[in-house]
């Protein structure tokens, strides 16, 4: 069953003769356990699509369904967008964006506490998650004292803290060297497979292309092609 269904989602900025169509109607779906890439040059609409999926920007047209719940249908559906994001969508950023005055463990626990978890419970679960990400030994370190790869692992931990089914990653390997980037990709794949999450990554990092199951090609605001990689074929995914 698809975690995310996007149907005819488009985005136009401005009105009248000043209107800019940043995203032409796009339709696709991503299953739980699938690792998908949005690939395209700068200005192709990748980030716009990511912002629309996460309801940070309200689409102009289309329908978005997450975990079987309709969150946008040519207009808001009454969902508390911020709470919905907190509970269902995890974000991973190019620059990690950890809260600089919180330790690694606190960064992960914060998202759980925002979602109503108690302080001790959040701390315990954060430590477990950091253990899963093989970084528990750095739990008390501030982000400034972590390497880029370590920071990205903590950011991934934060994206999974509330067991979100959809993880959106914005250029997660762009700031890392090939070796560390490869490790992050392996980790994202493991997350998708083991936690049955749908992971969508915006990238133009061609070094990492082979690691994805599905690649959505965007160009000039249009979803132009969908590629199933060898990994995706092994997983038996259909294009759709």
């Amino acid at each position: 069953m698809p975690v995310l269904e996007v149907d005819g989602v488009s985005m136009t900025f401005g009105q009248g003769e000043h209107a800019v169509r940043a995203l032409k109607p796009a339709t696709f779906s991503v299953d739980g356990g699938e690792l998908a890439a949005l690939l395209g040059p700068s200005g192709s609409g990748k980030s716009t699509l990511l912002l629309a999926i996460s309801l940070i920007l309200e689409p102009t047209t289309g329908r978005i369904s997450l975990n079987g719940r309709e969150v946008y249908d040519n207009g808001p559906t009454g969902v508390d967008v911020r709470a919905f994001r907190r509970q269902n969508i995890g974000f991973i950023f190019q620059q990690h964006n950890l809260i600089p005055f919180l330790t690694a463990q606190e960064n992960v626990a914060l998202v759980m506490q925002l979602n109503g978890a108690g302080r001790r419970q959040a701390a315990r679960r954060a430590t477990e998650l950091l253990g899963f990400l093989e970084i528990a030994h750095r739990a008390d370190a501030l982000p400034a004292n972590l390497s880029g790869g370590e920071q990205q692992r903590v950011a991934i931990g934060r994206a999974l803290a509330n067991e979100q089914r959809l993880v959106l990653a914005d250029e997660p390997t762009a700031a890392l060297d090939t070796e560390r980037g490869g490790k992050v990709m392996a980790l994202l794949r493991r997350i998708a497979r083991e936690r049955r999450s749908a992971v969508i990554t915006v990238t133009h990092d061609r070094r990492m292309i082979e690691g994805f199951d599905t690649i959505y090609h965007l160009d000039d605001g249009s979803l132009t092609a969908v590629t199933r990689t060898e990994e995706g074929r092994r997983e038996g995914r259909a294009i759709g």
Binding site: R86, F91, P100
Partner: peptide, 14 residues
């Protein structure tokens, strides 16, 4: 810490 504030909003902090 404006970027941290933006991050907090993005991850769903009220």
């Amino acid at each position: 810490k404006i970027r941290s504030i933006a991050t907090l909003k993005l991850i769903g902090a009220p």
